[in-house]
Amino acid sequence: MRVIFGGMLAGLAAFFVVGTCQAQEFSNSSNDVAQIGFSTGIFNIGSDESAAEMRLDYRDDHALFGVLRPIGGVMVTSDKAVHGYGGLMADLLWGDHFATSFYSSVGAYHDGDGEDLGHWIEFRSGVEVAYRFDNKSRVGLGFAHISNADIGDTNPGAEVLSLTYTVPVSAIFN
């Protein structure tokens, strides 16, 4: 799994290098809107302590540096673990109907009855590939890694596979 995560980080780095040259294809595009995301999946894949994951996040539409958007949310698991987080994300829009999102965040983690990840501060980084509907809602498959970046005595980390549905904020509150 660490090899997969390393590959994701390398891809993310390449994404940002290309993005600085072609920022008009990213999240500051007129095709992007603020979104609320609802996710469900498997937390700690491949472990004896895997659990169901549910997540709610907010994805802002105000781009920083023309590419990065704020993201914040909360994850809970069936083992009563909770992770509240905030960070930055970037979208690569592929035509009208496909998007790849990359994000990195930091937040507070409580293990509940689940996996002890070694510290109460945990970093979450991930990638999501989604289909965009005409109304700008999305359905996507995501992969994330949660880790304390070795600030704790142990750093077992956890991988998360999730299915996400995002809906424009304007569709909820208008």
Rank of each mutant, 00 (worst) to 15 (best):
G126L: 00
N135F: 11
I151E: 07
D150N: 15
I146C: 08
G142D: 01
D150E: 14
R132Q: 13
V129S: 09
L117C: 09
D134G: 12
L141S: 09
W120S: 01
F133V: 09
V160M: 07
R132E: 09
S125A: 10
G140N: 03
D116T: 11
A149P: 10
V129N: 14
D150I: 11
F123G: 02
V127G: 05
V129E: 09
D150C: 12
G157M: 01
N135R: 05
N135Q: 08
R124S: 13
G126T: 01
S125I: 04
T154F: 01
A158E: 05
S137Q: 07
N148D: 12
V129A: 07
F143K: 02
R138Y: 10
V160R: 00
S137T: 02
G118N: 10
L161V: 15
Y131C: 11
D153W: 01
S147L: 03
T154E: 10
E115P: 14
G142Q: 00
L161T: 12
D134Q: 15
A144F: 00
E115Q: 15
F143Q: 11
D134C: 10
G152C: 09
F133A: 13
A144W: 00
S125F: 08
G157D: 01
T154L: 04
I121K: 11
I151H: 03
P156D: 05
V160H: 01
F123I: 11
E159A: 05
E159Q: 07
V160T: 11
H145S: 03
Y131R: 06
K136N: 13
V139N: 04
I146M: 14
G140Y: 00
A158T: 12
